Amino acid sequence: WQHNPATRASLQSIFMKLDKLAGKYCTGKETVAKLLPDKALDLDGSAVSVSDVGGLDLPDMCMECNLDEISQISQIIPLEEGIAAHKKKDHAKAWECFLAHAKLENATAKYWKGYYLWEGIGVEKDRVQARELFREAADNGGIADAQLHYAFSLVNNPLVKFDREIFLKYITKAADNNNPTAQYNLGEVYFYGKLNQKKDKELGIKYLRLAALNDQPKAKKLLQELGINGY
């Protein structure tokens, strides 16, 4: 800086030189250093600030995971394989499958778990838990076999009081869901007026015929004895 005012550059001259330099070296892009969240300056523009991703704080990501849990999930066999194992009488494999899928709130698996507990297949009988599983599968999954088993879990069961209305409600649901055993039993209820139900032979024959069409042997035999065409 010149101490002699006469030799100093004028402000006009300085601004003109700055304007020329700006025209020569500025690209039009922002060149102001960014202030990052930790108050550091991004001098070379290489850092990415929070504002670059929408101004939101990024969540802390836990990169650790439990490989044992992942392994256990991957080892759960499909429910269809569990049912196939049951048919092959591989009850241990079937039970493990039903147990795992029931924990995942699968209604069909809950029915099968209840069936194993009711019959004591490879496990200790627990008809209280089995009955509850039948009800859950019947109500939440609309499983016809569960509706049938829940209805009959009320019959001759010293642990619960028989409720005719609930029995008819669930056996009707099962019959309307095309369960042949339910159709046969409901047909008898209406045809003969069982359980103090008012006789309705027409409705009884309807359910008996549906059962016969589903190859229910008792329904076929009864219709034959009654001289009623099963079709």
Score class of each variant (00 low, 15 high):
G23E: 12
D52F: 07
R127L: 10
F152P: 00
G141S: 07
L203V: 15
C62K: 08
D60G: 13
G227F: 08
E202Q: 14
E119G: 09
G55T: 00
A130M: 11
I83P: 00
L210G: 15
G120V: 12
C62P: 11
S51G: 10
A137H: 09
N229R: 06
L21K: 03
A219S: 09
T172K: 09
A9F: 00
L208M: 07
P37G: 00
K221L: 14
A22P: 01
V48C: 08
A102R: 00
H3Y: 11
K103C: 15
Q75S: 15
R127A: 13
D68C: 09
L210A: 15
R209I: 07
Q216W: 05
L21N: 10
Q2F: 14
K93L: 06
Y231A: 10
T108R: 07
C65E: 03
W118P: 03
P180Q: 01
A84D: 02
A40Q: 04
V128G: 00
K34Q: 05
K169L: 07
T31L: 14
A146L: 15
L203N: 14
G204F: 00
N4H: 03
Y116E: 09
Y25K: 13
C97A: 14
S13Q: 13
P5G: 02
M63C: 07
K110E: 05
G193T: 01
S46Y: 03
D139R: 11
Q129S: 14
L79N: 01
A130D: 07
Q183S: 11
K198F: 00
K169A: 02
L18T: 06
E119W: 08
N66L: 12
